[in-house]
Design a protein around this nucleic acid. Structure first.
Lengths: 196, 196
DNA sequence: GGAGTCTGTTAATGATGACTAACATCCGAG
DNA sequence: CTCGGATGTTAGTCATCATTAACAGACTCC
């Protein structure tokens, strides 16, 4: 059928394709609610073919979450360090916009990242948690410049709360156009963080 | 062993006991990550004993989510109608405090309520969604009094976002003392909702 | 003191599902 | 060509698990 001979990168794309399809499925039905067969079917191969690309279902999830956490952390590190160390205000805005863009662009990833950490094998879980912690600390650092009197624990809790707010996207999808949603979330988050 | 003869309400408590234990387990490992055996073990009976109280695993989850949704809706309806129709401000505060109290008191329930709706059989799911919608509308009604110019879709999205913020509790547990957390969440949510 | 209901228990039963084995195909390099 | 690796396929295999069956103690009500 679609054995187009000119298939570019017939290999390298499979992994990405699988990860993408699996993310959608995990987001919709949860890790344990999705079978290897399901994931295979979603990319047009059937079942055990996945073992040519991943060592197992948990490894697949681990790689997915590691990738998400790494992207967020990298983005956080990049945006929080906007040269100008004076304007913590600008850094916070950059973090906000970056996180919102990610959440709106990849709602499935956000959902999986939020829900499935427990299903990742111990070792990878530690690595993921480390990255998450680094990302949070990026926010806490910026916030502590804006609110020097506020204790770190409170800043951390506030950061988690804002993540909850921003990550509500997958739940209220479709209500608003993406730009409107982005603006709303940014305004609400900014206001929430001003009260520290 | 503990066959204390004077066991009060030996029956009626089992259902509640099971629901409670199951909620903790579901919150920790997800619906599909918990077996009937696990739930039985958590309340000291083993396995199929649960079928004396629930018709099945999904029915158990359905009842759990129905109960949570009903409690929230009831609480919402009660608090939003604080006699004084003038002070929408007060009604909003009441809704906020009520939701925060619930989230802080029952983090496991909040988590399950947020994550497991997809695993509920169709019919019950509809009922649960209806209750959730009613609860959201309670908020939207109050908010629309405070922000008459704001379109309902935006108010709904904002409500979901605030729920995300308030429900971040299970994720940042332990960072702050409950009262401090409650105060923080209320301040942040109030500020976020002022920006509409 | 026995019939019936409630609540449990320990064995099936039957699916589902992750993972492995054994066996093709394709394709690039020598 | 042909060897080898990459990628798939289809049949197991082995666990796990929800659910049911068959049976038993306890308590109530007569």
């Amino acid at each position: 059928m679609k054995t187009g001979r000119t298939e570019k990168t017939p290999t390298r794309n499979r992994r990405a394709e699988i990860l993408e399809a699996a993310a959608e499925l995990f987001a919709a039905r949860g890790f344990h609610g999705v079978s290897i067969e399901d994931i295979g079917a979603a990319v047009g191969v059937s079942g055990p073919a996945l073992y040519r690309h991943f060592s197992g279902k948990e490894a697949l999830l681990a790689e997915m979450l590691l990738d998400i956490s790494e992207r967020l952390r990298e983005q956080g590190a990049r945006l929080a360090t906007t040269a100008d160390p004076d304007t913590a205000e600008a850094a916070l805005d950059a973090l906000l916009s970056g996180h919102i863009a990610f959440a709106l662009t990849h709602p499935a990833l956000i959902r999986v990242h939020e829900r499935e950490l427990d299903n990742v094998p111990e070792q990878a879980r530690r690595a993921i948690r480390r990255l998450q912690r680094l990302y949070v600390e990026e926010w806490v650092t910026v916030l502590s410049e804006l609110h020097p009197a506020c204790p770190p624990a409170r800043l951390r809790a506030a950061t988690h709360a804002v993540f909850g707010l921003l990550n509500s996207t997958p739940r209220s999808a479709g209500e608003l156009a993406p730009e409107a949603m982005a603006g709303l979330l940014r305004d609400m988050a900014r206001a929430a963080l001003a009260r520290l």
